[in-house]
């Protein structure tokens, strides 16, 4: 108990770090995932190929490896001088976007084909059809899998802690290195993650109840 009270500032900083990193990479992953899902169902073959390549690459690479690449390869080959936080953000959101993409694509596939055909018959373009007709109706089926994906993202953000980004898991390392009782540290860290993940599942349950499309 004392560990928490004595180091409330560290725990708070770590908790906020986890929340911010999860939120930011969640948003970026969501945006990327939807766009890539759009690519994957697009009538343009190069876009479809790009989408498939993206998903194949990021879904099949261990996240820790992506972190290593972000830390040691990206600065050398692509953009030097990124902050650790930005590198963590990129690794997490690219990885998660592959899963978001597949969830969204499965949602798109649940919308009856006739809906898109009707939209195209009215003269709507592919993008208009996807944005105004298909995606809004796919949302509800996508909510449940997305909830799991974002919970996984929250826990995956712990890897950033090992790469010296301030977040909840890093606090654990910091304190146990100093010799404080690890059982208590683990408990408080775990509770911190629970707060975030419970909030996510609560939020998504609420969304699920709100968004119903009657057929």
């Amino acid at each position: 108990m004392n560990v928490l009270l004595d180091h409330l500032a560290e725990f708070r900083e770590g908790f906020i770090g986890t929340v911010l990193l999860t939120l930011a990479s969640g948003l970026l992953a969501m945006t990327l995932g939807v766009v890539i899902a759009g690519f994957r169902v697009s009538p343009v073959p190069p876009l479809r190929m790009f989408g498939t390549a993206w998903v194949t690459l990021f879904r099949n690479t261990p996240l820790t490896l992506l972190f290593l690449i972000a830390w040691f390869v990206v600065p050398v080959i692509f953009v030097p001088g990124l902050s650790p936080w930005t590198k963590a953000l990129l690794a997490l959101s690219f990885y998660t976007s592959a899963f978001v993409c597949e969830a969204v694509r499965s949602g798109i596939n649940t919308v009856p084909l006739g809906q898109a055909e009707a939209a195209r018959s009215l003269g709507m373009t592919f993008t208009q059809t996807l944005r105004m007709i298909v995606l809004p109706q796919a949302t509800r089926t996508v909510i449940a899998p997305l909830s799991s994906i974002f919970i996984a993202l929250t826990k995956n953000s712990a890897i950033a802690g090992a790469f010296s980004v301030t977040e909840l898991f890093g606090v654990q390392k910091l304190l146990s290195d100093k010799g404080f009782p690890i059982t208590w540290i683990f408990l408080w860290v775990a509770l911190g993650y629970l707060v975030v993940t419970f909030s996510i599942s609560g939020l998504f349950r609420l969304l699920e109840r709100r968004l119903g499309v009657a057929r």
């Binding site: 809906q115 009707a118 018959s121 009657a214």
Partner: peptide
Amino acid sequence: VGMVFQSFNLFAH
């Protein structure tokens, strides 16, 4: 070109 389908295909949302 107007199109009317067997299954109506009105936008459900």
